[in-house]
Design a protein around this nucleic acid. Structure first.
Lengths: 144, 144
DNA sequence: TCTTGAAGCTCTAGTAACTAGAGCAATTAT
DNA sequence: ATAATTGCTCTAGTTACTAGAGCTTCAAGA
């Protein structure tokens, strides 16, 4: 049994984030001490490590929640689990393609600063662009 | 002079977004009709086109705001403008590197679904990973 | 000129995944 | 016993929008 502070150190997740995960139902509510403080066990460590790792790989909390549920109930429903992972993989791939286009465009902009500002000019006039670059697919994880 | 609806069509930005840009001070407040409706001119079109293009390239609204200000005041302060663009470029580059690592890891996970679920296993145990993948740098644009 | 339907207005709240702070209570160490 | 640390809840802020309620204004036709 450990406090939220100890848990936070163990798993390297901020205290506030742990409480947030509990609030949204991602992790199970822990026991409480007589004085109403949270008391955790090994199971919580496992759960949080799983969540942390998945977040680092860019899974959304929603996806993580699904994965956890599946793990807990039907160990063998490999199909759905794989589907979530594959979907995410595709998402990552799409994003890479897009970012490389952006990179190209930005490099072109930045390189040519001789007399007049090419950055401003490029931004003012889309026709100066060589590639298509629309952030249409994107929505992204924000982590630290 | 055109209404917000006409402007929205011209620049292909949603009405609500235009009002939002005004609210946060990204674009100038337009004149109003006698009945208090917004009336725009060519200058607003230019401003919004600029903003849209920059957003598509992944610049934050804050960066766009800075760029616009610089364009309006000191046409020749190419250094700062270039700095913002370069910074963004670096951000994009960093992200690409990271996403490629994630791609590797996810592909490894997904591929090996023979009997037991490798996805869950991998997520449960970080040591099974071959590359480092931490979304430490990330914070991302969300656009459409 | 009157009416009606489309378009516009403001204000509030919701999205994802947290983070920060106020103001108070419990725990731990001395 | 007391002080320092840690924990508690609740609220609000972050980014870049989007959606909806409830109301007003505009433009066009009868």
């Amino acid at each position: 049994m450990f406090s939220i502070g100890e848990l936070a150190k163990q798993v390297e997740i901020k205290i506030t984030t742990i409480r947030y995960y509990e609030q949204i139902g991602l992790i199970k509510e822990p026991m409480r001490s007589l004085g109403n403080q949270r008391r955790y066990n090994e199971a919580h460590i496992k759960q949080l490590r799983f969540a942390k790792h998945a977040r680092e790989l860019g899974f959304t909390l929603e996806a993580i929640s699904s994965l956890m549920e599946m793990e807990a109930t039907a160990k063998n429903d490999c199909g759905k689990i794989d589907q979530i992972a594959k979907q995410h993989l595709q998402h990552v791939k799409d994003k890479i393609v897009l970012l490389i286009k952006l990179q190209t465009e930005l490099e072109r902009m930045v390189s040519g600063c001789d007399n007049k500002c090419y950055v401003i000019e490029s931004l003012s006039d889309h026709h100066l662009c060589t590639t298509e670059h629309k952030l249409t697919v994107l929505e992204d994880s924000k982590a630290r």
